[in-house]
Design a protein around this nucleic acid. Structure first.
Lengths: 197, 197
DNA sequence: TGACATACATACCAACTGGTATGTATCTTT
DNA sequence: AAAGATACATACCAGTTGGTATGTATGTCA
């Protein structure tokens, strides 16, 4: 009954190694050495490197990113601007120089692998699209409920917010500086205030 | 007298290969096969792979990115908001699905290599910092000249614009869709209008 | 309790990759 | 024109990497 446990342990370490070294920089042997697992176990659970990447994207990254945004669009009582501002404040509070230096796991993989691996790209695109869509739905409902200015374009605004967050991770990453992320988050929070009626 | 020509040809192809495959995915042999140059030439001009990366960053990427921003802060007569909006429109016009799918060369390398190679990171950080600084200088001058609202924070605004552009490239890249970039650019253009007094 | 599936462990390998050692044609300088 | 520097070309190599073939201990079910 070690099955799920072992697979999960391997998967978590693969995720961490990919986050630091990229998918092309992933060295399965090194990951296995850190755990005390052998190649037999790895190739028992994952038929090849492609499957490793897909498992990390679909089983680790996807749920981690969609939790908040699913709730955002599901909850009718939420003021979307308040919720998004709270989210940005949470991200700001969580940000440390070390975490920020590793970058956003989704954005890392998008930049590295989108042009190289269509299966990866499509799965990552669906994560990004879902995030944007949930935000757009929440913004539109906010407009109907009167908590968001009616002249805002929900889809364009949602895209803009996604880009603002990922861009903030990017600048903060190259600077290795969590404060840069926080500064950007606070400008985004201000921008969201500008969307109130 | 083939010297500069050959080095430049190799460097340009290295840049293109890195843009598509990443630095870790760079395969010197394949690049050399496309040109008709041999390993002798490559290692004559570049002592090792690290030097290749540094040359691409410093000689190809840096000048390509700094041209506009240097002019932006150098020219006293420019309205910074007009100039930035023009720049965004230029980027929008230039964007094709194929180009966008390859992503922003600077952002690509930042995401892949920042945590792995401190020499790369520092050089890329200086490019990003310089871009932001030039924007901040131009915005501050705009405030002094009355073309930018005085309550804007020039440094934070400049960071926000950088992040907005790079984030737009990122979402458009995973979507393989230039229109996404244009939509984001137009929201940024709108945001810049909001900074007018 | 025997047969089969599960969950790994071990040993091995072919292909690739960055890098080097050496050779050589051409150009420059004295 | 002799000597050295420049600008490559060719051949070769050691280490690494993803992947496989095979072995085996343990659990499960008839």
């Amino acid at each position: 009954m070690q099955e799920l446990d072992t697979r999960q342990r391997i998967l978590n370490h693969l995720f961490l190694d990919i986050r630091r070294n990229g998918f092309q920089g992933l060295r399965a042997d090194k990951v296995l050495a850190d755990l005390d697992v052998t190649k037999g176990a790895l190739y028992y659970y994952f038929p090849n490197k492609q499957a490793i990447g897909m498992a990390v994207i679909d089983e680790v990254i996807r749920p981690a990113y969609l939790t908040f945004f699913t709730q955002l669009s599901a909850n009718d009582d939420l003021n979307p601007l308040d919720a998004l501002q709270d989210h940005l404040r949470n991200l700001s509070d969580k940000a440390t120089d070390e975490e920020i230096a590793l970058g956003c796991p989704l954005n890392n993989l998008v930049q590295e692998m989108s042009p190289l691996n269509e299966e990866f790209r499509l799965s990552m695109k669906s994560i990004a699209d879902t995030m944007v869509q949930h935000m757009a739905v929440a913004i539109r409902r906010g407009q109907e409920q009167g908590s968001v200015r009616s002249d805002a374009n929900p889809e364009a605004t949602a895209q803009f917010l996604w880009a603002g967050i990922e861009g903030a991770y990017s600048l903060a990453k190259v600077r290795k500086d969590a404060q840069t992320f926080r500064t950007n988050a606070s400008v985004l929070i201000q921008y969201l205030d500008g969307l109130r009626p």
